[in-house]
């Protein structure tokens, strides 16, 4: 394993084992999370159903193709609840309680520590529902098996975009310790990814493409899976993901510098 040396694997396994063990202390939450995510999904499908049974359809998206987008959104949401939210919503706490100091004192990249320290199983139900929905929708469209293989690439890129957006917002807490709600704001805007972009007015589409790139999270991967301009879409998304990653990394370094030159 070239990219993942043994030390990193050991650290990650220690991180995830301990955070799983800690989450297990609160088992009721798991049940609540499962019911909740099922309910959220049902709500989205219900609204979609109301629209489509009127004979309306999002421009260029059949019912099953729209389900594909809902499935991709649910998958990302599940991954975010499992990997992103437990870590990035804690950055604020670290800054408020001053425990960010402990992270900076460790001989390991702080961004890596903050991003991988925790994982929570709460997103698993979402991932399972999403996979079921994706397979069902894919069979109905119908999509060839190759589409799924092709879809993995933009999904990974979406994951990276989602991570960078979230991490960038969480980073701002270094200056404004009171804004724990900031990641919630981001999350509520990301909800727009539930439906394909053509569901929204042009102004929204502009905003969600160029200002907050929600379009790349679900609509673009779904386009790739449908086999429309796949190569071009993947290239553009890769460029967006890479740019955001680099920018976020610089932003974080900059924030850290101001933390270490101002905190007391």
């Amino acid at each position: 394993m070239g990219i993942f040396p043994r030390r990193i694997l050991r650290i990650m396994s220690a991180f995830w084992f301990t955070s799983l063990a800690a989450e297990m202390e609160y088992r009721v939450n798991f049940l609540v999370a499962a019911i909740n995510s099922l309910g959220q999904l049902a709500g989205t499908l219900f609204t979609l159903n109301i629209l489509y049974r009127k004979g309306y359809h999002f421009a260029g998206w059949s019912w099953h193709e729209a389900l594909l987008v809902v499935g991709l959104f649910t998958l990302l949401d599940g991954m975010a609840s499992t990997l992103l939210s437990p870590n990035l919503s804690r950055i604020v706490q670290h800054v408020q309680n001053g425990t960010l100091d402990f992270i900076l004192l460790k001989p390991l990249d702080p961004q890596f520590q903050l991003s991988t320290r925790n994982m929570s199983p709460w997103g698993f139900p979402n991932v399972v529902f999403a996979l079921v929905l994706l397979v069902y929708a894919g069979m109905q469209v119908p999509l060839p098996a190759a589409a799924y293989a092709l879809g993995i690439i933009p999904m990974i890129l979406s994951g990276i975009i989602l991570y960078t957006l979230w991490f960038a917002v969480a980073t701002t807490t270094i200056w404004f310790t009171k804004v724990w709600n900031a990641t919630e704001v981001l999350r509520s805007f990301l909800e727009a990814g539930k439906y394909p972009m053509s569901a929204y007015p042009v102004a929204y589409q502009f905003f969600f493409t160029f200002i907050l790139p929600v379009a790349f999270l679900t609509t673009v991967p779904a386009e790739v899976m449908r086999g429309q301009h796949s190569a071009a879409f993947i290239l553009i998304e890769a460029a967006v993901a890479l740019t955001l990653f680099v920018v976020t990394r610089c932003f974080w370094k900059f924030a850290l510098r101001s933390y270490t030159s101002a905190s007391s």
Partner: peptide, 10 residues
């Protein structure tokens, strides 16, 4: 458990 983590990091 916390010690294990520190062990891995260091």
């Amino acid at each position: 458990e916390s010690f294990r983590i520190n062990g891995a990091i260091y």
